[in-house]
């Protein structure tokens, strides 16, 4: 049986179509990634799936049951971790967990035992009696996840679980999510971090502007990209452009000038006198020969490395948009919108 089945789900806010006739299935026990830039419709979808928003049209079935007709039963079997920690700042970590457990009808002894177990599992035992408002961002996220699973839900909805927290905490949270999935829970994960989805998910749905543009397993998504070999060469900018020299000599390879590397902008690279060349081929790339050729032609090579095709490449190929650029644009748009509307789409 499928854990979640969504058919032709749509939702508009005034004249903005946040989600447009999306359909997908999440299998029982699966880690399903819902990937897209900010403002793509991920949070709206998760809100509809958890009962916080009403769909304009379409149907949702959870464990084969119609969601709207069985809302109370279904709410008992799902756990939700929203994109922002939403526990009570004036309550301690332990009190927050016990309160969340009580919302699902757990008895006092049971909820206290479970709360301590989760505090231990999430490394928060020492902070059990500290007020939630005094927790760090990473601790808040961890406790919010613990609150989402305290009633042992069969399906867990995680909305951007690592957004806005430090690298170490994000890494810990990813490990916790992976462990939860290993216990057999169905996990529905929305994220705009492509690497996170690649590391954690078995199947991915790409959503852009409220529409699902592709759903497939990680294996199938990465397969065409793995048949492609990539390399990047960073060299000093000489009189002649490295990309032209290489193109003339190695005709079976494809060379492109790329403007960025490791987060540095093209203009900064230009100022630094560097040239970034991306090499693409259907066959393994002879990086050593390329480096020697450039140095023989008076161009000093700073760095040369083979690149692994990633989900980001798949995203770019499918959507036709440079992922990082898209994220940057939508983030700016959303920021303005958030100020006005007070939430995501």
């Amino acid at each position: 049986m499928n854990a979640v089945e969504v058919r032709n789900l749509s939702k508009s806010f005034e004249d903005v179509k946040a989600v447009d006739k999306i359909s997908f299935v999440v299998k029982k026990g699966e880690m399903f990634g819902f990937l897209g830039p900010n403002g793509a419709g991920k949070t709206t979808t998760i809100n509809m799936l958890t009962g916080l928003a009403r769909p304009d049209q379409g149907s949702i079935r959870v464990h084969g049951k119609d969601y709207l007709k069985n809302l109370k039963t279904i709410k008992q079997s799902i756990g939700v971790v929203p994109d922002e920690s939403n526990l009570y700042p004036e309550l301690s970590g332990l009190e927050n967990l016990c309160f969340c457990a009580a919302l699902y009808g757990m008895k006092k002894a049971e909820r206290t035992a479970k709360a301590w177990e989760l505090l231990e599992q999430f490394g928060l035992k020492e902070a059990a009696f500290r007020k939630f408002g005094a927790y760090s961002k990473g601790m808040k996220r961890k406790l919010t996840i613990a609150a989402g699973i305290i009633h042992d839900p069969e399906i867990l909805f995680l909305d951007e679980p690592t957004t806005g927290i430090d690298v170490a905490s994000a890494r810990q949270i990813r490990m916790l999510i992976a462990r939860l999935h290993e216990t057999g829970k169905t996990v529905f994960l929305t994220t705009h971090y492509i690497e996170e989805a690649e590391r954690l998910c078995e199947r991915i749905a790409f959503i852009v502007s409220g529409r699902i543009v592709r759903i497939d397993t990680m294996e199938n998504l990465l397969q065409p990209m793995q048949e492609e070999h990539l390399a990047e060469i960073i060299c000093t900018r000489g009189e002649k452009q490295a990309v032209d020299l290489l193109g003339k000599e190695f005709k079976d390879l494809v060379f492109n000038n790329t403007g960025r590397n490791a987060g540095r902008s093209f203009s900064r690279d230009k100022e630094a006198g560097e040239e970034h060349v991306r090499v693409k081929s259907g066959e393994p790339i002879p990086v050593g020969r390329l480096v020697r050729f450039l140095e023989e032609n008076g161009i000093q090579v700073i760095e040369a490395r083979l690149l692994r095709s990633s989900l980001e490449d798949v995203f770019v190929r499918i959507t036709g948009i440079e992922a990082k650029e898209l994220l940057k644009v939508t983030e700016t748009k959303r920021h303005g919108k958030k100020k006005k509307a007070g939430g995501g789409t």
Binding site: L52, T73, N86, L87, C100, L103, Y104, G105
Partner: peptide, 9 residues
């Protein structure tokens, strides 16, 4: 935090 109450059964 009110959202948490709305999510509960």
């Amino acid at each position: 935090s009110f959202e948490r109450l709305l999510l509960s059964p």
